[in-house]
Structure formats: C-alpha cells, structure tokens
Amino acid sequence: MHLFLMIGLVAFSIMAVLSRDLLRSAINLAVASIFLAIIFFRMNAVYAGVFEVSVVAGLITVLFITAIALTRGDQEVVENKRHLLIFPLFFLILVIIDILVMKNLLGKIPAMVSSETGTFGEVLWKQRTFDLIGQIGVIFAGVLAVLALFRQGEKNHHGGKE
C-alpha cells in the first residue's frame, strides 16, 4: 500500500512539473499532496496530514487557481524542449542512487529515538518557542516581500506580472 502511495505521489509530482498547462499543473500538485497526506496519516503523523490536506491541497490550490484565472495567456512562449529529455534522465539517475544509498544506509540506522514528547500544542508552545519567532519572521518576510515587489503594480506592469 505504501509503495502504491509513494508511486502515486511521485507520478503526480512529475506530471505537475512536466505539464505545460498551469491549471493542470496545479491540480496535479494538489493530487500529489493528497497522496502525501494519506502517507502522513498512515505513519501516525496526524497533524502533518491535516495541514497537508487543508493548507497545501486545499488553500494553496485555491490560491494557485485564482492566480491563474487572473492572468491572461496572450502570448505564446517558445520553450526549449530539452527539459523533456534531461528531466527523466536525471530522475532515473537519482532513483538509482537513492536505491543504492538508502538500501545500505537504512540498514545502518539504529532504532529511532524519541525524546521530545507531549501534545502538539505543548511541543509547539513550550518546547519549540524560539521556532515561533522564526516562523513569525518568515511569514512577515513574505508579507513585506509582496508589499515591496508589488508596489506601483499599476505603473510598472512588468513587475506586477511576475
């Protein structure tokens, strides 16, 4: 079952990368994310699964699709086709390396240790307090980046579009 889920995750991720249609790409990404969420659930990472479904598969897909709907595809972009050849090649090499390395490596990894225990809230608020400051910083940087890059969006059409 796990193998099936993993193959689904990887297959839909690849389709998301290779698809030239943005809308199809966003939907492929959402499906890949649902596969990942199921894997999280099956591995008892319930919170990670919930966030994956609600935020990544749900919210972000909605944002992507809204953004795509707001853009106009008024010009044909001529693209290099090389990626169609290079990507599978690299992917194959990566899979081979992954299988070879991980097979050896996993045998050498001792049983996982767990020391930081407690409920989700306890871990987040009491044990990882400093992370919260960092998270605030990251979100804040994102907001300020949007403010800075989309300034004079009307005047500077180029900047706004990107």
Binding site: F130, G134, G137, V138, A141, L144, A145
Partner: peptide, 17 residues
C-alpha cells in the same frame, strides 16, 4: 532546526531585496 528557520527568514527577505 532554528538554524534552518532563521536561514529562511534571512533568505526570504533577501529574495525580495
């Protein structure tokens, strides 16, 4: 993990800059 997080704070700000 904090190293990773603060790395991202600095990095996200630098992409915009």
């Amino acid at each position: 993990f904090n190293i990773y997080l603060f790395l991202e704070v600095a990095a996200v700000a630098s992409y915009a800059l």
